[in-house]
Write a protein that binds this DNA or RNA. Structure first.
Lengths: 217, 217
DNA sequence: AAAGCCATTCTTGTATACGAGAGCTTGACT
DNA sequence: AGTCAAGCTCTCGTATACAAGAATGGCTTT
C-alpha cells in the first residue's frame, strides 16, 4: 500500500477541515483548490471521493461539495459509539495486554500527572491521546484499533473543547488509573465498563456544552 | 444526499466483488470495465476511490487496482469486531427497544423456525439477517447501526459458508430467543453478552473451517 | 542455453476540452 | 414596485488526449 498524489491532497484537506480552516457548510471550490495545490481538477476530485467516503464532506450532484454539518444528534451518537468501541478495546486488552504495555500506560499516566500539576493542558491532552491509543493497540485486534483510531480522530476537534471544563483533567486521571488497574488484573468486564463510562463522560460534557451554547443564543 | 453515476458503478462493482465474480488478487482493468459499463475511465476511477475507501480493493500506484486479499487473521479480527459491535447494539437496544420492535423480532424468529423446519436454508438466512438488522436499528443510534450494517455486509460472503455447518441453525434459533428475552427484560449486560457470544460462534466456526481447509491442502 | 539489457507497448495518472444542468441576473409584465 | 420568466454564466460531470512509468518480449552476450 503506497501513497498517491490524491492521497496526500485528501490528507491535507482532511486536516484543514478538522482544524477548522473550512467551516461546516462551506463549499469547497474545485478550481480554486486545484490551483492552490498546483494540480488540475482531476486529482482534486479523487481526493474529494475519499473525503466523502470518510464522511467529512457531502457531494451534491451538479452543486458541488460542502463540508458536512455534523448535527448535535449525530455527534452524540458518535461519542456513544466511541465509548462502546473503547470498551471493546479494553475488554480484549484485559485478556491480551503485555507487561511492557502496562508499564507504558503507567508512564503515560505519570506524564499526564506532571502535565496536570504544571498546568500544561496541551501536554496533558497529548499524553491522554497516547494512553488511549495504547489501549487500542493492546486490544490485539488491528482492525478494531484502526476503527477506534479513525473515530477518535474524527471526534478530536469536539473533544478538545470540553477538556478544559472545570476539574475534568483531575477526574480523568483517576479514571485512567482505575482502568490500568483493571487491565493489570485482567478483569475484562470491569475494564470495559470503566472505559465506557470514562469516554461517555466526554459525550455528556459535550451535551452540556451544546445545551449551554443553545441557551446563550 | 443523492446518488451519482459513479455511486452506481461502485455499488455494482462492490456487489460483484462480494459475490465472487472477481477473485481476490485479480486486477480490475479500467479500460475493460469502462466500456463494459458504457462510460469513460473517469467515472470508473471515481468508483475505485470509493471501493478503496471501503477497503475492498487496493490501489497500487502505476500498477493498477487489485481486489484485496483478506487474510485469515484480518477476517477473524473482523468477526471479533462484529461480535463487539452487535453486543453494543444489544446493550443500547435493551434500554431503548420498542414493543413493536420486540414483536417484529419475535415474528422474524418465528419465520426462522418455519424455514428451519422446512429445511429452507436460504429463507432461514434471510430472516436471520432481518433479525440482526432489527437489533442494529433498535440501538437507537443511527451511526452505530450504519457501522454494524457495513461490517455485516462485508462479512456476508464468509458467514454464508458456515451457516450450513451441522446443527448450527437450530442452536442459532435458541440463542435468538434468549437474546429477545434479555432485550424484553431490559437487561443490557445480558443482552450484550448473549449477542457477543452468538456472533463470536460464527468467528470460531469460520476458524475451524479455515483450519479444515488448510489441513486438506 | 541462460541471463541480462534495451526497446516497445500497454496502462496508469493528469491535464484539458466539451456538454449539460443549476443558479443568478435582468428585463418585462401585472 | 414586486414578481415571474427567460437567457446567460458558471460550475460540475464526463470524455479524451497526452505523458510517464511499468511490464514484457526479443535480442545480444557470456
Amino acid at each position: 500500500m503506497s501513497r498517491s498524489r490524491s492521497d496526500l491532497i485528501a490528507e491535507t484537506l482532511e486536516d484543514e477541515i478538522l482544524r477548522g480552516r473550512f467551516r461546516p457548510g462551506t463549499r469547497l471550490d474545485e478550481t480554486r483548490l486545484a490551483e492552490e495545490h498546483g494540480v488540475s481538477r482531476t486529482p482534486l476530485r479523487e481526493a474529494f471521493q475519499k473525503l466523502a467516503a470518510a464522511g467529512l464532506i457531502e457531494q451534491q450532484p451538479r452543486r458541488g461539495v460542502f463540508v458536512r454539518e455534523v448535527g448535535a444528534v449525530e455527534l452524540l451518537e458518535m461519542f456513544e459509539v466511541m465509548a462502546e468501541i473503547e470498551a471493546s478495546c479494553g475488554r480484549l486488552a484485559a485478556q491480551r495486554i503485555t507487561d511492557a504495555a502496562l508499564a507504558d500506560l503507567d508512564a503515560a499516566n505519570d506524564r499526564c500527572r506532571e502535565a496536570l500539576e504544571a498546568g500544561e493542558s496541551d501536554a496533558y491532552y497529548r499524553e491522554n491521546e497516547v494512553f488511549h491509543h495504547l489501549i487500542y493497540e493492546q486490544s490485539g485486534n488491528r482492525f478494531l484499533a484502526a476503527e477506534a483510531g479513525r473515530l477518535h480522530r474524527r471526534l478530536k476537534p469536539f473533544r478538545r473543547t470540553q477538556l478544559h471544563l472545570r476539574g475534568r483533567m483531575a477526574q480523568s486521571m483517576t479514571e485512567h488509573q482505575a482502568i490500568v488497574a483493571a487491565l493489570r488484573a485482567g478483569e475484562a468486564d470491569r475494564a470495559a465498563r470503566l472505559l465506557r463510562e470514562h469516554v461517555a463522560v466526554q459525550g455528556e460534557k459535550f451535551h452540556h456544552l451544546m445545551a449551554g451554547l443553545r441557551a446563550a443564543e
